[in-house]
C-alpha cells in the first residue's frame, strides 16, 4: 500500500487536489490554483536551470509575455482561451528562442547578466508601451468561456489549471526521459563530451530556452486567470527570484522538486503575514540556506531518506552544483 503511494505520488497529488476542491473555501481554492500555476512555471525553470545547467534569470519576463499575450488575445480579439493559452506559450517560446540564440554565445555566468538585462527590457516595454499594455495601470483579464459557460471563479478555473498542470508535468517527464533530456544533462556536465558524442550543444541550449520559456508562457497565461488583473509588477525581479527559490528549495533536476517548492512557497507568504518585507527576507534566507546546506533540495533529501522513490534516471542528479560526497570506491579519483 505504502509502496503504491510512493511510486504514484504525483498522480495521487492531482487526485487529492481534485478531491479537496469540493471542500475548499474561495481563498484556499485561489491558493491551490496559484500553487499549480507555479508548479508549471517552476518545472520550466527546472528544465533549464536544473537539467541543462544554464543560469537563465528571465522567467518572470517569459511569464509576463505569456500572461499579456493571452490576456490581449482574449480582450482585444475575442480569441477563445483554448487558443490563447497555447499561443501564449508559443509566443514566450519564440521570444525564448530569440533571446536564446544570441545568449548561447556568452559563456557561463555572463548569461545571468544578459538574461537579467532582457528581463529589465521586458519590464520597460510593459511599462512604456501604453497603447497595448496600459503601462502600470495593468489590464483586466476576461473570464474564459467554454461552450457558452463562463468560468468566472476559482472553483471553475481550477479544472483548467489542474488539467494543464497535469499535461505539462507529463510532458516534462517525457522530455526528461527522452534523448533531449539526456542531452540537457550532457551539456550541463560536460560540453566537450556531449559534442564528441554527437550532441549539437548550440541547438540543445536554444531548445532548453524555448521549452523553458514555453512553460513560463503557459504558466503566465494560467496566472492571469487566477489574478483576473495583471500589471508589470506581477512579473518583476521578485517573481523571478521566487521561482529560483521554488526550484532550489524543492530540488533542482528532480521532477517532483517543483511540486514541493511551489507548494511551500505559495503557502509560506500566508504564514509570513503577506508583508512584502518578511516575504523577501524569508525567501532570500531560504535560498541561501538551501544552497549552502541542502543543495539537493527537499526532493533530494526525501529521496535519500527513502521516503520518496528514486526518479527514473534523474533521481541521482543533484543539480550541477552537487556532486555526491559518498563514494563507494572512487577513492583513487583525483
Amino acid at each position: 500500500m505504502l509502496a503504491a503511494v510512493r511510486s504514484n505520488i504525483l498522480p495521487l497529488f492531482f487526485v487529492l487536489l481534485f478531491g479537496l476542491s469540493f471542500t475548499t473555501d474561495a481563498y484556499a481554492q485561489y491558493l491551490i490554483n496559484l500553487m499549480l500555476v507555479y508548479v508549471v512555471v517552476a518545472q520550466g525553470l527546472n528544465l533549464i536551470l536544473g537539467f541543462a545547467g544554464m543560469f537563465a534569470f528571465a522567467h518572470g519576463a517569459f511569464m509576463a509575455i505569456g500572461a499579456y499575450v493571452s490576456a490581449l488575445l482574449m480582450n482585444k480579439f475575442g480569441v477563445s482561451y483554448l487558443v490563447a493559452m497555447p499561443a501564449a506559450g508559443l509566443a514566450a517560446a519564440l521570444v525564448g528562442c530569440s533571446i536564446g540564440i544570441p545568449a548561447i554565445r556568452v559563456s557561463g555566468l555572463y548569461l545571468a547578466m544578459v538574461t537579467m538585462g532582457f528581463s529589465e527590457i521586458v519590464q520597460w516595454i510593459l511599462r512604456n508601451w501604453k497603447p497595448v499594455t496600459s503601462g502600470t495601470d495593468g489590464i483586466s483579464v476576461a473570464s474564459p468561456v467554454f461552450f457558452g459557460v463562463e468560468l468566472s471563479d476559482d472553483f471553475q478555473t481550477f479544472y483548467i489549471i489542474l488539467a494543464v498542470c497535469a499535461v505539462m508535468t507529463a510532458l516534462a517527464q517525457f522530455i526528461i526521459r527522452s534523448r533531449l533530456g539526456r542531452a540537457f544533462v550532457a551539456i550541463r556536465d560536460s560540453e566537450i563530451a556531449a559534442q564528441s558524442s554527437g550532441i549539437n550543444v548550440a541547438r540543445t541550449k536554444v531548445l532548453a530556452f524555448a521549452i523553458s520559456a514555453f512553460y513560463a508562457g503557459v504558466g503566465g497565461s494560467l496566472f492571469s486567470l487566477t489574478q483576473h488583473y495583471i500589471n508589470p509588477d506581477n512579473f518583476n525581479l521578485y517573481q523571478t527570484i521566487m521561482q529560483f527559490c521554488m526550484v532550489i528549495v524543492g530540488g533542482a533536476s528532480s521532477l517532483i522538486g517543483p511540486f514541493i517548492g511551489a507548494t511551500i512557497l505559495t503557502w509560506l507568504p500566508e504564514l509570513l503575514r503577506n508583508a512584502q518585507a518578511f516575504q523577501e527576507i524569508g525567501f532570500g534566507l531560504l535560498l541561501i540556506v538551501f544552497v549552502i546546506f541542502v543543495p539537493k533540495g527537499l526532493a533530494g533529501l526525501l529521496i535519500d531518506k527513502g521516503i520518496l522513490p528514486r526518479e527514473e534516471y534523474s533521481s541521482r542528479v543533484r543539480g550541477k552544483w552537487v556532486v555526491r560526497k559518498e563514494r563507494a570506491e572512487g577513492s583513487e579519483r583525483t
Binding site: G53, F55, G108, L109, A112, Y238, I241, F244, C245, I248, Q276, A277, F278, Q279, E280, I281, G282, F283, G284, L285, L286, L287, I288, V291, I292, P295, G319, K320, W321, V322, V323, K325
Partner: peptide
Amino acid sequence: SLGRASTEVAIVLSTVGLMIAIKG
C-alpha cells in the same frame, strides 16, 4: 566537494538570496 562551475552557480544563487533578503 563541488566542481568549479557548480560552486560558481551556487555562489550566484546565494548572492541572489542576499539581494532580496537585504532589501526586505
